[in-house]
Simulated assay, not measured.
Amino acid sequence: MVNVDSIRLNNSLKVLNFIMKNEISRADLARKTSLTKTTVGGIVRDFIDLGFLREKRFASSGIGRPSVLLEIIPNSVHAIGLEIERHRVSGCLTDVPGHLLAQKSISFSKSDFSSIMNSIFEVLDDLFAKASKRSVNVNAIVVGAPSPLDRESGIIKDPPKFSDFENVPIVDLMYKKYGVDVWIENDVDMVALGEKWFGEARTLDDFMYVQVNEGIGAGIITNGELYRGKEGYSGEIGHFLIFKNGEYRYLEDLYGVDVIVSRAKKEISPHISSIQDIEKLLASKNKKAEKLVIETGQAIGAAILSMIHTLGISDVFVGGKIVVLGKIFLASVQEMISKHIFSKSEINIRFSNVKETAVAIGAAGQGIRLYLQKLIAEKG
């Protein structure tokens, strides 16, 4: 049996996606979504009733009634996006168009449960206080965290290289403290959405965002929508297997940023302690550093190429801490792909220009959409 409520919700989300991009008329919404004018009219009325949308009249260039565009009310919904990293927690408060109203970031040296949770609550307390000063109500929180996650139960399960932060019921903990709707999402998926909404991918319906930090992952956008896969683990390229020194190893256990730094410290200089130190060696034309970075770029490039061959995506953005390695790294990624691409089609690979707060900003945008989706479902 067809679920009428599900159809209605999906239609509402189609309309929502177009409304959040540009001011648009009802007629254009019907044309772009392939929905009837009656269906679009009902959905628009729902959004107006919810206080999210309003009409904007302007004089037509021709004769007759003024044209009517629909525009979102910027301060109708506010959300906090939170990124939980292995050594830092970052958050931001945004309105519907994605204006950054407040932000806060805390780094921590200890990665035990108490230290991480204290940092999380310190960031959130700060953002709620700033929202209060602006007389802004926070409607939702979305947490971007490393996988694996249980999105339905709101639990961070057991992310690699994050051993003291496992099976954390993060959604329940936040809801009990702040009393607003909370969701959890994969961190790299949130950057991909941030790239789609605020970066160079605004005009792209199909692309991949690859993040290289201690962990390595990819966020995939197809047909303008986030692709999760049935179990929600699409894009986990850090767990691609590589056969090296007689055994199979995960890609991120060989070429995660922490591993690269550790290798550089051992193979090049004991004074190296960060990816920025490797960047400085590249600037001084250090051959050992160049060799290590080229090897890393080739390995990451091979993983990206496998994704390209699987998904047929031709636009790829690379981000994360790895970007400080600059042209030498990116050129080795591009060379690997150009040399081994099956179809010899044009592949566009570049560094992402979204800021380091991209996970938090993408998560905040997702929070606004999930909150509105909830209101639409409740309205029935």
Score class of each variant (00 low, 15 high):
286 N>Y: 07
177 K>W: 08
320 G>P: 11
153 S>K: 15
249 R>D: 11
34 S>G: 13
59 A>P: 06
130 K>G: 03
334 Q>R: 15
300 I>D: 04
21 K>I: 03
44 V>Y: 10
334 Q>P: 06
259 V>N: 12
191 V>L: 01
64 G>Y: 08
330 L>P: 01
136 V>R: 06
107 S>Q: 13
106 I>A: 01
2 V>E: 14
378 E>W: 07
104 K>T: 07
342 F>H: 08
209 Y>F: 05
362 G>H: 08
104 K>D: 09
347 I>A: 01
70 L>T: 09
286 N>S: 02
225 E>D: 11
179 G>T: 03
301 G>T: 02
102 A>R: 02
168 V>P: 07
320 G>H: 00
232 G>Y: 10
207 F>Y: 05
225 E>L: 11
172 D>N: 12
218 A>T: 10
14 K>N: 15
342 F>R: 12
46 D>I: 10
288 K>V: 06
25 S>P: 05
125 D>L: 05
112 D>A: 11
143 V>R: 08
181 D>K: 15
57 R>I: 10
132 S>Q: 14
279 E>M: 11
373 Q>M: 13
74 P>V: 06
377 A>R: 14
366 Q>A: 05
281 L>V: 00
334 Q>M: 11
137 N>V: 14
134 R>P: 00
294 I>N: 06
86 R>K: 15
361 I>L: 08
53 L>S: 02
337 I>D: 01
251 L>Y: 05
345 S>R: 15
23 E>M: 00
43 I>P: 14
374 K>V: 02
286 N>P: 09
65 R>N: 13
147 S>P: 00
139 N>M: 05
15 V>Y: 13
17 N>E: 15
135 S>A: 08
101 L>P: 05
371 Y>Q: 09
168 V>Y: 03
101 L>V: 00
269 S>I: 04
184 I>Q: 02
314 S>T: 07
186 N>E: 05
74 P>L: 01
91 G>T: 03
273 S>Y: 03
42 G>W: 06
117 M>L: 15
322 I>Y: 01
266 K>H: 15
324 V>P: 06
65 R>T: 06
143 V>D: 03
3 N>Q: 11
226 L>Q: 03
47 F>W: 02
181 D>A: 12
87 H>I: 10
7 I>D: 13
355 K>T: 12
100 L>N: 03
169 P>K: 04
121 F>I: 09
265 K>Y: 02
343 S>I: 03
37 K>T: 15
293 V>T: 01
211 Q>A: 14
202 R>V: 08
318 V>N: 02
158 D>V: 12
31 R>I: 04
295 E>V: 05
34 S>M: 14
292 L>P: 02
163 S>T: 11
254 L>T: 09
205 D>E: 12
345 S>C: 05
56 K>G: 04
367 G>A: 09
283 A>V: 13
27 A>F: 13
372 L>N: 00
58 F>G: 08
109 S>N: 13
229 G>C: 01
343 S>M: 13
285 K>Q: 14
205 D>W: 02
336 M>Y: 05
209 Y>H: 03
363 A>G: 05
298 Q>R: 15
135 S>L: 12
171 V>Q: 12
266 K>Y: 14
53 L>Y: 10
209 Y>T: 07
16 L>Q: 09
233 Y>R: 14
345 S>T: 01
345 S>P: 06
348 N>L: 09
124 L>M: 11
297 G>Y: 01
235 G>T: 04
69 L>G: 13
111 S>Q: 11
30 A>D: 01
40 V>T: 08
103 Q>H: 13
360 A>H: 04
242 I>M: 07
242 I>A: 09
